[in-house]
């Protein structure tokens, strides 16, 4: 169970946490069952929820702000369930291992969109990358419209 992994490897500064992100599928579908009385804190505490999200996304994304993006993910449970998988996908297929960033943009009428900023190496195959992103949009909008309307992908040319 995921929660037992939290318990054994729960510290954010621990290198052991990297194993956790490898098990992305389990992270998406498994229910969390507290094994310690302290674990229920993730249900009630704002700060513990934030730390949990920071820890879960640490290998995939940098957060532009310390709390803004984290709180947005925390209050959009549907997004939180599949964003790690989306991150793994783009890290492997598009950013080729480079760290991506999350940035929350607030528009008029309180509408908020979470941008996934993906660095693209110089000399990368842009037509191939655009094809991957277009295909991703098409498929994910059909499957998860309420999640995708909160997301935007930004490809950022980056000299390495």
């Amino acid at each position: 169970m995921i929660n037992s992994i939290y318990t054994k490897q729960g510290q954010s500064s621990s290198l052991l946490d990297e194993d956790y992100t490898n098990d992305k599928l389990a992270a998406v579908v498994e229910e969390e069952v507290p094994v310690s009385i302290l674990d229920s804190g993730y249900l009630s505490s704002i700060e513990l929820k934030r730390e949990k999200i920071r820890r879960e996304y640490a290998q995939l994304f940098q957060f532009t702000d310390r709390t803004r993006e984290v709180d947005f993910i925390s209050t959009n449970n549907d997004l939180n369930k599949i964003l790690p998988s989306i991150g793994e996908f783009f890290k492997k297929e598009v950013s080729k291992g480079s760290m991506m960033s999350l940035e929350l943009m607030e528009e008029e009428n309180d509408w908020k969109t979470l941008f996934i900023n993906i660095p693209i190496r110089s000399g990368a195959d842009w037509s191939g990358i655009n094809e991957i992103v277009d295909s991703f949009y098409d498929n994910m909008f059909d499957l998860f419209p309420t999640v995708m309307e909160k997301l935007n992908i930004d490809l950022v040319s980056h000299e390495f």
Partner: peptide, 21 residues
């Protein structure tokens, strides 16, 4: 006031598959 799905489920609605329901 904000609301978030605390539970996890899958539902088929007018907009397709929705999770977090």
């Amino acid at each position: 006031i904000t609301q978030s799905g605390g539970g996890f489920g899958i539902a088929l609605g007018a907009q397709g598959v929705q999770i977090g329901s």
